[in-house]
Design a protein around this nucleic acid. Structure first.
Lengths: 347, 347
DNA sequence: TAATTTTCCGTGTACGGACACGAAATTAAG
DNA sequence: CTTAATTTCGTGTCCGTACACGGAAAATTA
């Protein structure tokens, strides 16, 4: 029993292909009794449209928007999602999809508003969005909902009904994993510190979640550090960072530092320069700077957020939603990859 | 400038579509000078065939063979690649591809030969193969080469020119990673053991490579175990295993055990039953049995070979080779994922 | 009953590429 | 210079779906 085509169904039903097509697409202009007859046949023969033929016949251009921070100064993190977007474009039906990029400065709230001001809602068919400024983003999402624009979020989750799907990592559990790694076989009675260097901690729920997860691990485990210190350095410069770290390192018997985002290389540099070797260091993301220190064994573990994959999967979901009307899972959790010097080469 | 089609190129070159088509597919029967002219145009305009139109026009059935061990007794490992194959089938253009399964008993050399005896070389267009028996497999690969049948290997590498691509993990480095994990923060002066439980160690080069990598780590590191013991239990039953382990554990101060394949759960069970708690355990693969012990913290780390992904990528490569003539990379290394109790949920 | 509208359905073509077939042009042989 | 062989190339058809267009039949109105 080979594959049934519209033509086959039409012949069996003694109607033309056009009629079958109208039934399939519910375009009306078919008498109830032939409609029912054809619908039954479609079900009986389990008719499935040929995707190749369909997409050939459709040939419509898809316009998708990507709204996310751009790379400014040392926030090289945001280069990674761009790679994922490029990969997705290569994998998808190339020229069929046009990506419109709306990149904003994640320190410039007004600039972000300005972008939203001129956002061409009508021209877009879907949005991939990495939210930063909470209020403005929420507003944007609501507007998208009004315009019936499907949105897929990544990197950071805003809990808005307008969002069709979120692609990201479970921040809480990644902190949990970090805690396991940093405490695995650690000497008893020493201290641990958590370093927050997010530009604006309040903007990123996942930064907070990571710290929560990190602390939760020790609450449920037999091994505890003697002290657990938090250092918040929102928007601080490198000088202030070094001061703070020096202070902490001399006041406590620091066995490990957990940096809650990708700027762990700054701490690594400090430790390296001040030759503190018995300090474990765990942070996030495969930035070139971080990789350097991982290779030198100055960073022990990096947890990858997989920003490329987040963007890749996000764009893919959006495409499948817009083109094939395939509803994505509301939450797409990516694995929490553990990267060490030894397995780095394969990521 | 919109997308160029064969028709466009043909018009610009003042030839017909057929001629352009012949140049694209290198089917000859085109004079050198028109060929060059058209090739230049193709490059200049960066012609890319429309995949929808192409697959519609081709509409040929692809027959691919999968040759790998089947699940017998407690070798549940081989269920995993089957999942990957199913995923690949779902992702590929469904009905276009037919998979023919040739599953053999990895303990039954003759059975394998029998399969090869009746292998329908002529009917297949590609083979995904997990080699076990070295000589027979080599013979099979040579035969495939004669028949011009492209082969993609996974799981275990046989170095034969007939092989178009290998999808797998760098076994040596995975052993290296295992060593890092087992020795990370380990107390000085204790002992480590390597446990080999492969059915036939000599059949699997990667088992040996894992042990090599494991040992190499300590050769290049400052931290060493006091003793490093190897236990070989090829084809041994569970009773013998327990005996051997008991013996080792009482003769040495074992701080950690590295099991070089997915049967690590057997060692976990022993340690659990004998209540030896200060022993680290590292092994391979997310079998249900292993996951159980990972959750109980009786296994510290599992390295995933990603058998599903191996099969998935392998089948994908084969498809792309057969259908689109896209040559795969000769070696496709998969990342060495580190799985702990804490990040397990996301794999 | 004729004229008009409405409902229902068939025909034709586009989408872009692959390939079979056969025609025209070129070359080789006599 | 003709004829045959060979090379080179154009035409036409098919793949399966979507949709525009228009025709025929049925229903409504005059």
């Amino acid at each position: 029993m080979t594959k049934v085509r519209i033509k086959d169904i039409a012949e069996i039903a003694n109607v033309s292909m056009g009629t079958v097509d109208r039934v399939i697409h519910k375009r009306g202009e078919v008498s109830p009794k032939t409609r029912e007859k054809i619908q039954k046949l479609l079900e009986d023969f389990d008719y499935k449209p040929d995707i190749a033929a369909r997409s050939l016949a459709m040939k419509r251009d898809i316009h998708l928007a990507v709204v996310m921070p751009k790379v400014v100064n040392d926030h090289t993190f945001w280069e990674l999602p761009q790679q994922g977007i490029q990969q997705a474009l290569d994998a998808l039906d190339h020229d069929q999809v046009t990506i419109h990029r709306f990149y904003f400065d994640q320190l410039d709230r007004l600039g972000f508003s300005a972008i939203l001001e001129n956002f061409p809602y009508g021209k877009m068919e879907g949005v991939l969005f990495a939210p930063v400024f909470r209020e403005e983003s929420t507003e944007f999402l609501e507007r998208c909902a009004e315009e019936n624009l499907p949105v897929v979020l990544f990197n950071s989750l805003l809990d808005t009904p307008a969002v069709r799907s979120y692609v990201g990592q479970d921040a809480y559990h990644s902190g949990y994993v970090a805690a396991k790694l940093i405490s695995y076989g650690m000497e008893q009675g020493r201290d641990l510190a958590i370093v927050n260097m997010s530009a604006r901690k309040d903007h990123y729920a996942h930064i907070i979640e990571r710290e929560r997860g990190f602390r939760a691990y020790f609450a449920s485990s037999e091994s505890h550090p003697k002290h657990m210190i938090s250092i918040d350095l929102n928007g601080a410069d490198d000088l202030l960072l070094k001061e703070k770290l020096s202070e902490i390192c001399s006041s406590y018997d620091i066995a490990g530092l957990f940096v809650t985002n990708s700027r762990v290389h700054k701490v690594a540099r400090f430790l390296s320069e001040t030759k503190r070797e018995r300090v474990r260091l765990v942070g996030y993301d495969l930035l070139p700077e971080n990789i350097e220190f991982l290779k030198q064994d100055r960073i022990d573990f990096l947890l990858s957020q997989k920003p490329e994959e987040q963007a890749f999967q996000g764009l893919n979901s959006l495409y499948n939603l817009v083109v094939f009307n395939r509803e994505p899972a509301p939450r797409q959790w990516l694995p929490i990859d553990i990267i060490t010097r030894e397995n780095l080469a394969y990521y």
